[in-house]
């Protein structure tokens, strides 16, 4: 059924991967992220790194939907937009501090997840993909057309979460780390196992008593909340949001991060997200070919290494 070439790691590779998969890899990554501003702290570098961190959060949210549960969501940016706009509107219109908008954002994104998921999750997986794409566009066009969202020019003057970019960066890193760990914990729990059962074989999962529809909806809602909270960070970082930030391209980039890193693999999607968000900075000269290269890369990854750069390891440690 599945493409070949999953596990043929010799003992050495297995030992290496165990080291990488352990929490040490995550801790090392965190330390790296925390030390980065000491190496380079220009406003530009900080903004790039903050964006990368937010992108990591998006990828870890989408990973719950695509990687764990196997549902292709091509409009994931819709939740990002819902979160950003909700906090943006509330903070500018009602003068709330950004943090105070978070509970509302969670409620709104849960509702958005249910509204988008409930009618579509009964459909075949490929229909779901295109419907989510449609939803992503609907949200963007709606934001573009409504007055409350500021129309095409968006919302300005959103208060930041922190006084300086450095503090904001650290805050973002902490929040994103918590989000990544949370997503990973959910993935290993009863719920996360059920997601994987659904991904592997929906009928067998049903036969074991897994209410596949509810489980899929849960994945959707979790993804929505992660995306929405990332949207709050995004609004706080830029202090201005407009529909142009929430195009299909953005959804596709998050998907690429997940696929490239390794669907269902937490360290994989983190690395994937960092690579996708920093690559353009490294390859400035090839800006025109960037998305072309991403498209080709996506095909090649699926053909040659569908499990991604840092695949999920199904083998359990025998304790």
């Amino acid at each position: 059924m599945t493409a070949p070439g999953a596990t043929r790691a010799p003992a050495l590779g297995r030992a290496a991967s165990r080291l990488l998969d352990s929490r040490w890899a995550g801790l090392a990554g965190l330390v790296l992220a925390l030390l980065a501003p000491f190496v380079i702290a220009t406003p530009y570098a900080l903004s790039v790194m903050t964006s990368a961190a937010i992108f990591v959060m998006l990828a870890s949210g989408l990973n719950m939907v695509v990687g764990f549960c196997g549902l292709l969501d091509l409009g994931y940016v819709a939740f990002f937009a819902v979160g950003a706009y909700t906090s943006g509107v509330l903070s500018t219109r009602l003068g709330l501090p950004l943090l105070a908008t978070v509970p509302v954002v969670i409620v709104v994104t849960v509702i958005a997840g249910v509204v988008i998921g409930a009618p579509t999750l009964r459909l075949r997986s490929d229909y779901l993909a295109i419907v989510t794409l449609g939803f992503g566009e609907i949200i963007r066009i709606t934001a573009n057309n409504l007055d409350v969202t500021g129309g095409p020019s968006g919302i300005y003057g959103i208060p930041s979460l922190a006084t300086s970019p450095v503090v904001f960066y650290y805050l973002t890193v902490v929040i994103v780390s918590v989000a990544v760990i949370g997503a990973s914990r959910l993935g290993r729990s009863r719920l996360g196992r059920a997601w994987r059962f659904v991904r592997e074989d929906e009928d067998a999962a049903e036969a074991m008593g897994v209410h596949t529809y509810k489980i899929k909806l849960a994945a959707y809602i979790a993804g929505a909340v992660w995306g929405g909270l990332a949207g709050v960070l995004f609004a706080g970082q830029l202090s201005a949001i407009s529909p142009g930030s929430f195009t299909f391209l953005q959804s596709a980039l998050v998907l690429m991060a997940v696929v490239l890193g390794g669907m269902g693999s937490t360290p994989g999607v983190v690395v994937g997200a960092i690579v996708i968000s920093l690559l353009p900075e490294v390859l400035r000269d090839f800006a025109g070919y960037r998305f072309f290269a991403f498209g080709v890369l996506l095909i090649i990854v699926m053909l040659v290494r569908p499990q991604g750069l840092w695949p999920h390891r199904s083998r359990e440690a025998s304790s």
């Binding site: 196997g70 996506l298 569908p306």
Partner: peptide, 9 residues
């Protein structure tokens, strides 16, 4: 391959 791979491709 799984349908997901095909869609992503």
């Amino acid at each position: 391959a799984p349908r997901l791979s095909l869609l992503i491709t």
